[in-house]
Design a protein around this nucleic acid. Structure first.
Lengths: 208, 208
DNA sequence: ATTTAGTTTAACCGTTTGGTAAAATTTCGG
DNA sequence: CCGAAATTTTACCAAACGGTTAAACTAAAT
């Protein structure tokens, strides 16, 4: 009745503002973003920003919360599931890289946000949807004890996986220059990683 | 004659400004940094910033260049050396994590800089000291052909290594919360990684 | 002691910034 | 068609910003 489409099309002024703010904040950060530029990109008057969202901080908080809530639940669902370890690793890497591919700005935005205002992030923005890795840890310990995988500390394993998934997108421009790739090659390279990271991890876990 | 100490102690006004600018720029970025705050931290008058460094951009450029020149040469030296592959990987991970441990702000600073002003970074700030990974690539290919390590694309290998070294420092606060560690535990954890990443990589490279 | 060059300060300037007030316009129920 | 509520625009403000100027201060040279 409201909207016959599956995805809400940017229609109302409020939505256009949010979209423009999303663009500017993710590209330039809180300090680099200017209210006037957000208004221009939304094609509306600057005063309307304050009419719908009271202040720059409130608007930023809305955008930040939306970004977190888009990224976290999928990750959490995989890592807290009761899949067998190898399948869990496969799916975790798959979904992680998928999400970042579709929203490459997410990791750097979250990291920059935490670095500049940790308390605001953990108190206000981050809901209680933080993934709990304990299940995963016990799974790893169990398979180590059973001799199915080599001895490894589960904390380091998960940090390794997340690092290999996220960092190439964060440091994409630098990687591109370092590897001497064009933008097209780089796109292919990043797509390959879903398979390559999985192989790399599982190969490392082979028992001695 | 100039300075009897090994490390130059912040003495002159010019040095105090540079130090303060280094702090503020690395913590808050170009946009978040304010000239007044730099002056305050240096304990001097704001006009002196423009007396010694002409503008905010020039000052920022000096700081950025210093950071690049501190990080790059050591990395470059290892990766372009003619050490055997396993030893090269060991040393690369060791020096990489050492440098970042002592200057944890470096990766995020470089990445943010590139993301906001790629042309300025690659044209002006980055000297010709960019590491050339071709030697490393051929080494990997040779050992794959000789059956000493399993089949792996060298580009993915080096991206994996850099990711696992750099990302935990970039995302330290998030990792800390996720893993439920205190700051002390986290420090130990990051120190462990020099060994853990090396083991992880070498284990993954074992022939099938 | 006076000059001179280098350094530091206080006061100021034009612009941009986030934000506000009030008028003008649109929307919509009666 | 009218009037009240919601929306949009214009004009404006105080504060903060990067930067400049000219005066004041300091220290060494003559």
């Amino acid at each position: 009745m409201d909207n016959p489409e599956l995805q809400p099309i940017p229609d109302t002024t409020e939505q256009k503002i949010f979209e423009a703010a999303h663009e500017v904040f993710t590209q330039k950060g809180m300090d680099g973003a200017k209210m006037q530029e957000i208004a221009d990109r939304a094609g509306i008057n600057k005063a309307l920003l304050h009419y719908y969202y009271r202040s720059k901080e409130k608007l930023y908080e809305m955008v930040a919360r939306a970004i977190i809530n888009k990224a976290m639940p999928a990750i959490r669902q995989v890592i807290e599931s009761d899949l067998p370890l190898e399948e869990k690793i496969r799916r975790f890497i798959g979904t992680y890289i998928d999400i970042i591919s579709q929203n490459p700005y997410i990791p750097l935005f979250i990291i920059s946000e935490i670095n500049k205002h940790p308390e605001r992030f953990f108190d206000a923005i981050l809901p209680a949807t933080l993934p709990k890795p304990e299940v995963f840890f016990r799974q790893v310990e169990a398979e180590v004890a059973a001799g199915k995988i080599r001895n490894i500390k589960p904390q380091h394993l998960i940090v390794n996986i997340v690092s290999m998934c996220a960092f190439p997108f964060i440091g994409k421009p630098m990687m591109r220059i370092l590897l001497g790739m064009g933008t097209g090659e780089m796109r292919i390279f990043l797509e390959e990683r879903k398979y390559e990271v999985t192989t790399f991890v599982l190969a490392s876990l082979r028992p001695e």
